[in-house]
């Protein structure tokens, strides 16, 4: 008797659970009623659903109206966004305030602000040097090195990662060498790289490549491995050839992880590039910063640092933007933005 009673108690919450998705039940009998009823179900998860329901009719030609544009822009200024923007200002402002106060009062408590330039000095430096050819050329050269190294790493890392992830034999062949090379930091490659490559430029690009390559490769492999096997089986019984499987299933399926790899790889590429430029370089933002130190040009050091920060930010921002353009579905994925 006792066991019966306990069984009942267990059963109760389950009954409640079953009655939750009621709208789906109402959705069945006539196909006509179905659309509106299922629309209500999806509504809960996707607010966009309602707007798109009358699909089979031809869409009206979109007209541009200024008031509409303004109104939609105004509608984007929500309380949430204002708070976000305010907090961003506070966080950056606090950093500047600390810097400003530190340099103004020449703080000395273990760390020394004695030689640190003030924000104003750096600003002056920017206005003097900022538009000079030398500074801009240094930026351009660094960006070119980053792009070269990064895209070479991308175009080798992603296909190799897909192949290693998919085929056991390729994995067995490449992984031992990858595992040995991976722990060697890109900076440790500087002397070897100078010996290996015919010129300075190639050796710096190589070091940048090394920095970006391993994060991209390993995340791609991980992306293939984390792909749900049922998707591959589904594709195969829908008639996908081996090549199509790669192109239409494995690649898009691993894309979220690949982009994680690209973002990490870009970060490591900058670290490696700046270090390489400081040690062996001519030109480049890293060289600019190090040269400023040797020339006792303190404001230029800070300008160099801020420049590196902004370039890194821009690069990872671009990667994130391309990522969300290429993977619009992620906005709806479980644990996604919604």
């Amino acid at each position: 008797m006792g066991s019966l009673a306990s069984a009942k108690i267990v059963a109760l919450p389950m009954v409640e659970k079953h009655s939750v998705p009621e709208p789906a039940v109402a959705a069945v009998k006539p196909p006509a009623a179905e659309i509106s009823a299922t629309g209500a179900t999806a509504n809960a998860s996707a607010p966009v659903a309602v707007a798109e329901i009358p699909v089979p009719e031809p869409e009206p030609v979109p007209t541009v109206s200024l008031t509409k544009v303004l109104r939609s822009l105004l509608a984007k200024i929500t309380r949430e966004r204002i708070i976000t923007a305010a907090l961003a200002c506070i966080s950056i402002g606090a950093l500047f305030l600390f810097w400003y106060l530190g340099t103004k009062y020449r703080l000395e408590f273990y760390i020394r602000f004695k030689n640190v330039p003030t924000p104003y000095e750096v600003y002056q430096q920017l206005t003097q040097v900022g538009l000079s050819n030398k500074y801009l050329v240094n930026i351009a050269i660094s960006v070119r090195r980053i792009l070269l190294g990064f895209f070479i790493a991308l175009s080798i890392g992603v296909p190799l990662g897909l192949a290693i992830g998919k085929y056991q034999r390729v994995r067995d062949l490449f992984m031992p060498v990858v595992e040995i090379m991976r722990p060697i930091p890109a900076i440790a490659w500087v002397p070897m790289s100078i010996m290996l490559w015919p010129n300075n430029e190639a050796s710096i690009v190589f070091i940048t490549f090394i920095g970006a390559f391993f994060p991209i490769l390993l995340n791609t492999i991980h992306g293939v491995h984390s792909l749900d096997g049922v998707l591959i089986r589904a594709a195969r019984c829908l008639g996908a050839s081996e090549f199509r499987l790669f192109l239409n299933v494995i690649l898009p399926g691993s894309l979220p992880h690949i982009f994680t790899g690209l973002a990490v790889g870009m970060g490591v590429a900058w670290v490696s590039l700046i270090a390489a430029e400081m040690i062996s370089g001519q030109f480049g933002v890293g060289y600019f910063t190090w040269e400023a130190y040797s020339l006792v040009d303190y404001p230029a050091i800070v300008l160099g640092m801020i420049t590196i920060g902004f370039l890194g930010l821009a690069c990872s921002g671009i990667i994130r933007m391309v990522g969300s353009l290429l993977m619009p579905w992620l906005a709806f994925a479980p644990g996604g933005k919604r």
């Binding site: 789906a24 959705a27 659309i35 299922t38 998860s45 699909v55 709806f332």
Partner: peptide, 18 residues
């Protein structure tokens, strides 16, 4: 399947039955 109005949705926007 009664789901024509959802043709441009992504699977993650749909319920299990759909």
């Amino acid at each position: 399947a009664g789901l024509l109005s959802f043709e441009n949705h992504y699977p993650d926007q749909l319920s299990g039955g759909m």
